[in-house]
Design a protein around this nucleic acid. Sequence first.
DNA 1: GGCCGCATTGACAACGTTGTCAACAGGTGG
DNA 2: CCACCTGTTGACAACGTTGTCAATGCGGCC
Lengths: 342, 342
Amino acid sequence: MKEPTDRRPTMLDVARQAGVSLKTVSRVVNREDGVSAGLAARVESAVASLSYRPDDRARRLRRYAYHTGSIGFVLVDVANPFFSAIFRGIEEEARNRDCLVLAGSTDGSEVRERQLIEAFIDRRVDGLILVPSGEGLGPLRSEIDRGTPVVVVDLELAGDQPVDLVRSDHYGGGVAATRHLIDHGHTEIAYLGDDPSIFSARLRLDGFRHAMESAGLTAPPSREVFGSHSAEEWRPIALNLFSTDPAPTAVFTAQNFATIGAVHALHDLGLQHKVALVGFDDVDLAGAVDPGLTVVPQEPRQLGRRAAELLFERIDGLDHPRRNEIIDHRLILRGSGEIRPA
Amino acid sequence: MKEPTDRRPTMLDVARQAGVSLKTVSRVVNREDGVSAGLAARVESAVASLSYRPDDRARRLRRYAYHTGSIGFVLVDVANPFFSAIFRGIEEEARNRDCLVLAGSTDGSEVRERQLIEAFIDRRVDGLILVPSGEGLGPLRSEIDRGTPVVVVDLELAGDQPVDLVRSDHYGGGVAATRHLIDHGHTEIAYLGDDPSIFSARLRLDGFRHAMESAGLTAPPSREVFGSHSAEEWRPIALNLFSTDPAPTAVFTAQNFATIGAVHALHDLGLQHKVALVGFDDVDLAGAVDPGLTVVPQEPRQLGRRAAELLFERIDGLDHPRRNEIIDHRLILRGSGEIRPA
DNA sequence: GGCCGCATTGACAACGTTGTCAACAGGTGG
DNA sequence: CCACCTGTTGACAACGTTGTCAATGCGGCC
């Protein structure tokens, strides 16, 4: 039974209890040789009896001077499975390196994003992975200049800062999804997605429009609906869309929640076998709904892994021009996208 | 334009550039008064030109001595939406306190759990929130004794350590789900769930069995299927179960992935309107499947918030006997659980 | 016996920051 | 003119650890 102490034991406490100097304790704790068996044993037992553990911060302050063994991950919302899967990928890489991950959600607020980045920098993370909330990278600028490696996921940047980029092929996916609907005979195709001020949403929309134009089609503004909504908020929006006359015969839902909201709405109206749907991003029960959902899935875990790989290369000192990695898209056919117009 | 330096500027660099002493820089940076306007301005401009930011670790080492402004969150898997929602709840509380969250996944491995806990302790987190992987709390013991606050989510503990507990009402939820099926006329009810060595799984199973026994029913071992599987792995298991003769007319899927796997299997067999299903935990498209899924949802975000609240109370020095909070259960009726046997 | 080398041990400074306290200047009151 | 106070500034130690280097003791070799 150890009696609880108000103060955590330090190396000095161990030294006193073992009757040796500070440095000897340090040597034993760090498994350096050159300590006689007798002293080592005394120290070991003092360590155990105080259940002493060295303070990593103090250790690194002195020893590695500028490697904290932690990286920061700034994302929009951990509770969103897409982001948490990225997190998971990052963590897997970090684990191999005995590196811990600090994470914070911005909810899309640039103010909050700045706060998080500054808090991470003040704690001297070895690197940052960022899913940006806005277009800008303001507070990062001076930090990048000073050599803290940064990898950005899901955003394209102007200029040529040494910032690596990893993202899905939003544009190609948008084209593929739309073309798939066109190939099945649709001409009246609607678009539901995030606000195009978000970089990835912009690309998906561009892909949609490009595929439409290439086929000689256009979607009127009323059929391009944008916004950041929850699944429940998308539902009435989609209900409204499919109740117009003439109603679209197909829809490309370019975002998770939009997909779920639209599926709900189609079921509400009994149109799930009439209106074709292709979604961007996969969802849990996509195969169990009737009909199954045709989607362009992202590979968020792979996104995260790759981002972390690039980050650690930079942390290890790799000097390399900025890289821009785009993870390929594919299309999973499950039924909803293969419905033909009446 | 700042030229990149190999070394991050320290307070000493600022002092030299401004031609003042270390302490004066410290005063300006910390907004202490008693610095003349002229010097303050010189320091400010030196800070800006070097884009200096104080090192939080060194500052805390000296100043607060034992508050690092970070907490650790040990969980099973960040990519699991249930856990990431808990994370989100924790983060919301932490944000109010300018506290950062370190997180790590264990994948259910006690070895990994121990490594994570030790890594967090070595970094002197102010507190720990833990979703345990096993039954034990081995490595935490001495840490708790030494006064690091710990809150455990989803586990009950023997003994009376000052560890607060927050969890869902697994037992009550299991009883309610099972009783709901019984009330709809079912007697042949199967159970699919996690291995009962997992605490919450054990409670759900106990709830199931209790409700069965109270109604004078029993499920043979072949109808109680346990294991940690992905949704895809559960699918054939469920297929197999519903293909036996006599087949169960209802199933309680006590875990997320089991629910999804079972729904897939029922659709594969065309039995989705014949076999009743109640699940534990809600899933994204639960309302869009045909029939909608009746579930006992958990409130993971609330779980996380509450856990963090309790943790911060302890961090702030509240001395209170161990608390054991159980978040109420409810039942969402969507159709799948209201199917009656033929 | 004296000298060298090796193995062991510890004293001290340093990492980047802040708390304590002393030194200094300038003004004020007696 | 001097004692005293106040406001500003800086020198120094300390937080918990490790790197550097010197001191000690012992055995072996000439």
